[in-house]
Computed example of a mutant assay.
Amino acid sequence: MTARAVNVSIRYPDVPVLERPERARREGYTAIESWWPFPTAGPAAAEVDAFVGSVTDAGVELIAMNLFGGDMAAGERGIAGDPRRGTEFDDSLAVALEVGRRLGPSMFNTLVGVGPLRDLALDRLATAATAAERAGRRILIEPLSGIADYPVTAAADAFALCGTLGRGAGVLGDLYHLAVNGEDVDAVIATRGSDLAHVQLADAPGRGAPGTGTLPLERWVDALEAVGYRGWVALEHR
């Protein structure tokens, strides 16, 4: 049976960051994932310690975490291609790998940035993938929906990009995003499901919990297991 986790950032947006792991534990989850949990790309050591402590104290497993994605509220979705943000990108990667060393998450979702994938973005993503592989971890490339000019919107886009980045990169298949973008999710699962590094889900329309929309999420999860996917399935819904 594929293991289940919950994304505490989207699930508990009104709960302070340091209280979210415990909230997940109280709701019966033993594993969590998180968007970037700090207000800046380069948090102070005390901030990192506090986040690590909140996960440890709650007794849950952190399986995945986003790298810093920029000003998400303003529409940024990654800073890899911004020539002004090199230090932030490097700081975020270093902090993520430190959290990985201390808490064990093996996957770091890395948003590529809005607009064409320029050489600078590809170079930074390759650097991150290489560093992650050396640490026994991977960055994740995720097709997104609802973001104008985001360059990775289909599973084929993500697999092609990861193919250039090497073994330190893997594809995050968010079934909600794929479905909303018009992807044939059944075909993706049948042909590449076993190659996915991580899976997330929410229902559509509305990005709500499973059963609130029309997506055949239970059938898709069963199909993933049937083709040999043995990774996590994380609930990433409002």
Rank of each mutant, 00 (worst) to 15 (best):
E22P: 01
W36N: 02
S34A: 14
T40M: 11
A24N: 08
P21S: 12
A24G: 07
E27S: 09
Y29D: 00
R26G: 09
R23A: 10
W36R: 01
G28I: 12
S34E: 07
P43F: 01
A50T: 04
G42K: 08
P39E: 13
A44V: 10
V52H: 01
E47A: 12
A45L: 08
P21R: 06
V52Q: 02
S54L: 05
F38E: 01
A50K: 01
E33M: 06
A24M: 10
F51I: 02
F51H: 04
A50C: 06
E33G: 04
P39C: 11
V52F: 04
E47Y: 01
T30M: 08
A24P: 03
E22Q: 15
P21E: 10
G28D: 12
W35K: 05
G42A: 15
E47H: 02
S34F: 02
G53V: 04
A41D: 04
V52D: 00
S54T: 04
R23V: 10
T30R: 15
R25Y: 06
V48C: 02
A44K: 14
S34R: 05
G53N: 13
G28C: 10
R25V: 09
S54N: 07
W35H: 14
P39S: 11
F51L: 09
V48T: 15
S54W: 01
T40N: 09
S54F: 00
E33S: 08
A31P: 05
V48R: 11
E22Y: 04
A41L: 09
D49S: 09
E27R: 13
A45Q: 13
G42D: 15
A45S: 11
E22I: 03
A50Q: 03
P43N: 10
A50I: 05
A44W: 02
W35F: 12
A46E: 15
T40L: 10
P43L: 05
V48S: 01
V48Y: 02
R23K: 15
F38A: 00
G42V: 03
R26V: 06
E22W: 09
P37G: 12
E33D: 12
A44L: 07
I32S: 10
A24I: 07
E33H: 06
G42C: 12
G53K: 06
G28W: 11
I32A: 05
A44E: 14
A31E: 15
A45W: 03
G53D: 15
R25I: 10
A44G: 11
I32N: 08
P37F: 05
R23Y: 08
S54A: 13
P39W: 07
